[in-house]
Amino acid sequence: MSALAKAEVREWLFHGADLNNTSLIDDLVHSVCTEFTVSAERRVDLELLFCEVITNSIDHGILGLDSRMKKDPSGFEQFFISRASKLAGLTDGYIKICVEQILPQRIRISVQDSGAGFVFPQDNSDQTPDCLLLAYGRGLLIIRNLCHSMTHIGNGNCIVLEFDTFQS
């Protein structure tokens, strides 16, 4: 047998200042694809997935920013500015990522942050065509579309995703 043994479970821990490192996602994707077998086309999806999940953890879990700020254009700008300055000064907080091979072509990714968690919006009463215009919630939409399944556990500070490592 010539195949190299691949990892079954791996963990990564990122602390405060690491989270402002622009190559964090690239390095993580590279590392996951080295440890687990991921097809070239799914690698692009994995990068997008990690980007959206980690952005959510940083913005809402660790920095405590409220997406509702992004509802109008000036708030949107404020959100970006506030995010950049808070992130630059970040010294505490962490994100823990665990990747586990659960099927030959599927991995389970858990992303947990040190934040207080949050309640997911359940209220769809304003779901008119205009809700497409709302400047938030798109990250979760993308995550849901890239994964086989998505579950929030604990108090909302941990997300568990099952991701197919080959196109089905």
Binding site: L48, C51, T55, K70, F76, A135, R138, G139
Partner: peptide, 9 residues
Amino acid sequence: DSSALGMLL
């Protein structure tokens, strides 16, 4: 990613 979608809006 979704931040680009925000910038388009």
